[in-house]
Design a protein around this nucleic acid. Structure first.
Lengths: 120, 120
DNA sequence: CCGAAATAATACGGAACCGAAACGATCCGG
DNA sequence: CCGGATCGTTTCGGTTCCGTATTATTTCGG
């Protein structure tokens, strides 16, 4: 049973959640997080590990430095963490953090809440 | 009748749409549009005009230069247009464009499509 | 009229990001 | 072992964006 959304409802939902994100700036999330950064964050927290720079770059269709830089930024915000892979020390394994998990969870609640008050 | 989304469904939907946005970079939308820019774009196209710099700044809880710069960028992409208000020439009225309307419409279709294939 | 208020834009120094290329570290097949 | 391949990072020059403060223009009350 799919989620039945009409285009205007979908856009209204997206609009309100995005507004919430922008307004709560300075908290954990957003701070004007780019689409790329959000995509990386959600991939890390929704898809099964392990996650690597190369894997994320492929999945998003961007170059590796883009991922490295995004991880720098989000690492500084403590939303993700990096660790060398001991099995193959060329690889870097991207790990979840408590703060990142909370931020993602909060985004989920935000979407659910806005979906609930959506006029149909 | 609200849109009933569970948190994981909501996040999965958000994840997939964001991935779509990032991957189709270079088209009209996204190009790594920031949350702020997207919020501005959706406000302009979903809420009744007229829209002004001051009004948008207030609604998003950001300073006016942020709006001016976002309008610069999106104006360059032809997603929005600016025009002086003849009634009060201090004001700038932000106008919709064909390209912007198409981009927003496409975002709506994207969300609807991902909602449809969402596992529940 | 004229000075205060309001509006959007601009200046400024600093930070982040871009794509492309180069770089070090590591692995692995022969 | 060692030379090529792989992986993530760094460098480079250039662009964009940030927040704060300032500016130019326009309106309007007295």
């Amino acid at each position: 049973m799919p989620v039945e959304l009409r285009p205007l409802e979908a856009l209204t939902l997206w609009h309100r959640v995005t507004l919430d994100l922008v307004r709560e700036d300075g908290q954990d999330l957003s701070h004007d997080l780019s689409a790329r950064q959000l995509a990386i964050l959600l991939t890390i927290y929704l898809e099964p590990p392990p996650h690597t720079v190369r894997g994320l770059a492929g999945k998003l269709g961007v170059t590796k430095p883009v991922i490295t830089r995004a991880l720098d930024t989000m690492g500084r915000l403590d939303l993700v963490a990096r660790r060398r892979d001991d099995a193959d020390r060329r690889n870097v394994v991207i790990q979840r953090t408590v703060k990142g998990a909370l931020a993602v969870e909060r985004l989920g609640d935000l979407i659910v809440a806005q979906g609930r008050v959506l006029p149909r």
